[in-house]
Design a protein around this nucleic acid. Structure first.
Length: 527
RNA sequence: GCCGCGUUCGUCUAAGGGCUAGGACGCCUCCCUUUCACGGAGGUAAUACGGGUUCGAAUCCCGUACGCGGUACCA
């Protein structure tokens, strides 16, 4: 016996290697922008697929036409593109298991629902919305604030279990609106092994008779996931923890329809929390941080929701911070590139409990990535940020030099503006209050001669300039420190920016000299 | 209410029976710097509670509390 088992195992692994192919899917409903939790689910799917040489599929779950939102699907694709998490198969990328939009697979679901009815595991229900309402209000008590359509009430409702077969046939032939509900068994235990939580079990008596097929002929999520995961040969199914309570329904459907052997392995990801419960886009506007990947404007309400991209996050930082929200590799390493994540990610190190999103930490990740990345990685983004402020940058080489000089002090890409705009625009106003009080004739003379002398420097660089500056200061018997702040104000207009001599180096000698002259004039007016 | 899942510094987390419970963010102090940052050195702060099991528990078991999720012809 043992011998046979071993042989069988050998055969399965040897003869059916294709069955082991990893195929995962992200299945959003196109109802709006993608928030942190959604993108993280994409990321974990992607990492798992790539590290197992598997496929990452994107399936659009648009079974609820009433919630269709124009542009939402395109937004999802753009987000994935920005994050560098491109699917292998999707409505956009094609593939052998299409269509990848559930509304286009409508016909394939009904036969499964009917099969279940025929097998006695589901039934037709003709209750109108009003009747359902009536049942719920009738049964509602303080003890039971939300009565379910379950085994305790189904025999009191209008469905194919309570009326005769012939009556059911008549209703169906008369086109009476109906739904198909799963008939949850009583007193059974459904168990499964979650990749993150280990064994999870449910008593089927406590689960309601969920609608599988809606009156409009569309499946609900419950039927659609199971049917599509089967047809698309999904091997591992990752989704948010909010799905855990309905997992027994899905498992039963697998058992009834396709057999448990074909069922994907489940992994219910912990939720990402806001300050009060599951993170929502409301939290974002309320607390001043983005929750969507990119800006999203609801076409119906016109409501704007800010995105990480527009807030000035690099994709590297965004992906990195998302990965760390619910996972780490067991070491103290926190900075991971996407490639490194593919290498080190492992599903069994994903946490069980939800993580509260911390915007301060998110900014830290971005700061680290701005410092690490070559400026060419984000120069374009910065360029467009400057354009928005009315500064058009033409010289890329100069821009890159400037960005390299100030990047250490930028947390968000938007910070580049305030830290470097003066490289592209001479100050027209100066913070004279920092200079005037201690201003005198000797200093004015010093700067006049300095601005002239520096024009004769042959090898123009920060060090040479600093030498000249200190030399002249010594000759004038003024402490160099007393002169540095004025010089800074002259060049940039205020008390900010990198080391003065480096600013001057990048500005070039003519520009430096001109700025000093202009500021000297303003100071003379002031006195 | 019922069902399910959780619980280590304020936050993200490490430690999977054995040192003073480690790191990161934030905050505070000092150093560097005659701008502001960066950087460097310190500091602050946690095993929800109660029972077991064990020579030994953050870790295993049970209970309680608390939190979160679900409870739609939404996903």
């Amino acid at each position: 016996m043992l011998y046979v088992n071993t042989l069988q195992q050998l055969q399965t692994t040897y003869f059916c290697p294709m069955e082991k192919k990893v195929r995962v899917r992200f299945a959003p409903s196109p109802t709006g922008g993608l928030h942190l939790g959604g993108v993280r689910t994409v990321l974990y799917n992607y990492l798992f697929a790539k590290q197992h040489q598997g496929d990452f599929i994107l399936r659009i779950e648009d079974t609820d036409q009433s919630r269709f939102v124009e542009g939402a699907e395109a937004y999802i694709f753009e987000t994935l593109k920005w994050c560098g998490l491109e699917p292998d198969e999707s409505t956009l990328h094609g593939g052998n298991y299409g269509p990848y939009r559930q509304s286009e697979r409508k016909d394939s679901y009904k036969k499964y629902a009917i099969q279940l009815v025929e097998q006695g595991q589901a039934y037709y229900a003709f209750d109108t919305p009003e009747e359902l309402d009536a049942m719920r209000t009738r049964l509602r008590t303080e003890e039971n604030p939300s009565p379910q359509y379950d085994h305790t009430v189904r025999m009191q409702m209008r469905n194919s279990l309570t009326i005769s077969d012939s009556e059911t046939k008549i209703l169906l032939s008369e086109q009476t609106p109906f739904v198909i509900r799963i008939k949850m068994p009583v007193g059974e235990t459904v168990r499964f092994n979650d990749m993150i939580r280990g064994e999870v079990s449910f008593d089927t008596s406590t689960v309601d008779d969920k609608v599988l097929l809606k009156a409009d002929g569309m499946p609900t999520y419950h039927l659609a996931v199971v049917a599509d995961d089967y047809q698309m040969k999904i091997s591992h199914a990752f989704r948010g923890e909010e799905w855990l309570p309905s997992a027994p329904v899905h498992i039963l459907l697998w058992k009834y329809l396709f057999g448990l052997d074909a069922m994907p392995q489940w992994a219910h990801l912990p939720l990402i929390m806001g300050p009060h419960g599951k993170l929502s886009k409301r939290d974002g506007s309320k607390y001043g941080f983005p929750v969507f990947a990119m800006n999203w404007k609801d076409p119906k309400t016109g409501e704007q929701t800010e995105g990480f991209r527009e807030r000035g996050f690099t994709t590297e930082a965004f992906v990195n911070l998302l990965a760390m929200l619910g996972w780490n590799d067991g070491t103290e390493k926190e900075l991971f590139s996407l490639d490194e994540l593919v290498q080190s990610f492992s599903i069994d190190k994903v946490h069980k409990s939800g993580a509260k999103f911390d915007f301060e930490k998110a900014k830290w990740f971005n700061h680290e990535w701005i410092k690490t990345l070559p400026v060419t990685a984000y120069a374009k983004q910065v360029k467009s940020l400057f354009a928005e402020k009315g500064i058009v940058l033409e010289n890329d080489e100069y821009l890159e030099e400037v960005l390299s000089l100030v990047k250490d002090r930028c947390t968000l890409l938007a910070d580049f503006y305030e830290h470097s705009y003066f490289f592209f625009k001479a100050p027209r106003e100066w913070d004279l209050s920092a200079v005037s009080p201690k201003w005198n004739e000797a200093k004015a003379t010093f700067f006049t001669s300095f601005s002239k002398t520096l024009l004769s420097i042959n090898d123009w660089n920060a060090a040479a300039l600093e030498n000249l500056f200190k030399q002249l200061a010594e000759q004038a018997a003024i402490k160099p420190g007393e002169l540095q702040l004025p010089l800074r104000i002259m060049l940039v207009g205020g008390k900010f920016g990198p080391t003065v001599f480096e600013i001057a180096q990048l500005l070039g000698k003519e520009e430096t000299s001109e700025r000093i002259t202009a500021a000297l004039y303003a100071l003379a007016q002031e006195q």
